[in-house]
């Protein structure tokens, strides 16, 4: 591998990380919001796939990709609200409900998505940030989708809101101690329902990015565990929205290794590199599972870290 090749691979990885990380970012922010309220939603994979399908269908029928994004968010919102409602029933396990919603959301998406596999819908436009360099591979890598910036802005807003806004404090209190929330007269179930619904909305938007920007088409193999990896990512980011963005970028870079190497003609081990994000996630989970700082920052009511 020459120096020029290495440069191309690195640039492709940076660009890939930006592209691949966006859905991770949205799902992770949604999951972070949900988990801060003390509940876990493992079903975001379902939201992601359904969101991708709805966004594509919405963009195809209305002609406006941004309307598609909104519709995807609403589909995710409905799934999230259902999840939140079911979890408030006594004796119902939130992890199991998440698994059920993974298959329910995916099933709905495949069912209604059949007619949209062939037609081509208008995509989201990227912002060309690298044209001034005059280098085609840099320009290619710096084609950044506006949703990426929306995600970053949102993460900073959430980070700020968790500390400074009334609802942020209520959300965190509910997540840390349901008993104290009750003592303050806060309806724990309602807070968690709203948090899960809002989290579902964000996961749906993440799905819209998949079908409307990168890879940029709707098919049944579109998502492969991004929704689930985001749950691990939130644990890794220790429930901090800003750290979620960095974790998402790291995951995106891992996911971009295979395609980047392919761009300079190395296709050996492509399938092995496909597994890189999963292996990375697993190692990160092993590393962060017994970490004391993670245990300290975890919402106290969360079933997954108990």
């Amino acid at each position: 591998m020459t120096g020029a090749d290495l440069f191309i691979v690195l640039i492709a990885m940076v660009g890939g990380a930006i592209r691949v990380s966006t859905p991770f970012m949205f799902v992770a922010l949604g999951e972070c919001l949900t988990e801060k309220s003390g509940r876990i939603n493992l079903g975001h994979e379902g939201n992601l796939v359904l969101g991708a399908m709805v966004a594509y269908a919405g963009s195809y029928t209305t002609g406006s990709p941004w309307l598609g994004v909104l519709m995807a968010g609403c589909a995710g919102l409905v799934l999230g609200a259902l999840h939140g409602w079911i979890c408030k029933l006594p004796k119902v396990n939130d992890i199991a409900v998440g698994i059920a919603f993974m298959s329910f959301g995916t099933g709905l998406a495949f069912f209604f998505g059949k007619p949209y596999i062939q037609p081509s819908a208008p995509r989201l436009e990227a912002i060309p940030l690298g044209d001034w360099t005059g280098n085609s591979s840099i320009a290619q890598a710096l084609q950044v989708n506006p949703l990426f910036f929306v995600g970053i802005a949102l993460s900073v807003f959430l980070w700020w809101a968790f500390r400074n806004m009334r609802w942020g404090l209520i959300l965190r209190m509910t997540g840390d101690s349901a008993a104290s929330a009750k003592a303050m007269g806060v309806s724990v179930d309602m807070v968690r329902l709203l948090a899960t619904a809002a989290g579902g909305f964000l996961a749906g938007v993440g799905g819209a990015f998949l079908s409307l920007y990168y890879p940029g088409s709707w098919n049944e193999g579109l998502s492969s565990g991004q929704g689930l990896m985001a749950v691990a990512l939130v644990i890794f980011a220790r429930w901090d929205p800003v750290r979620c963005v960095f974790a998402a970028l790291l995951f995106g870079a891992a996911g971009a290794i295979g395609p980047s190497l392919q761009s300079i003609g190395i296709s050996q081990g492509y399938y092995f590199f496909n597994a890189a994000p999963y292996i990375l996630t697993l190692f990160i989970m092993i590393a962060s599972a017994r970490s004391k700082s993670a245990a300290r920052e975890a919402p106290g009511e969360l079933s997954i870290v108990k």
């Binding site: 029933l89 006594p90 119902v92 396990n93 409900v97 059920a100 995916t106 069912f111």
Partner: peptide
């Protein structure tokens, strides 16, 4: 579409978990 079975399975799964509350 063949995903019809998936939808039915998903509905069964969700309803089944809701039914846990009746024990």
């Amino acid at each position: 579409p063949d995903a019809t079975v998936l939808v039915l399975q998903g509905i069964i799964f969700v309803v089944l978990l809701v039914s846990e509350t009746f024990y």
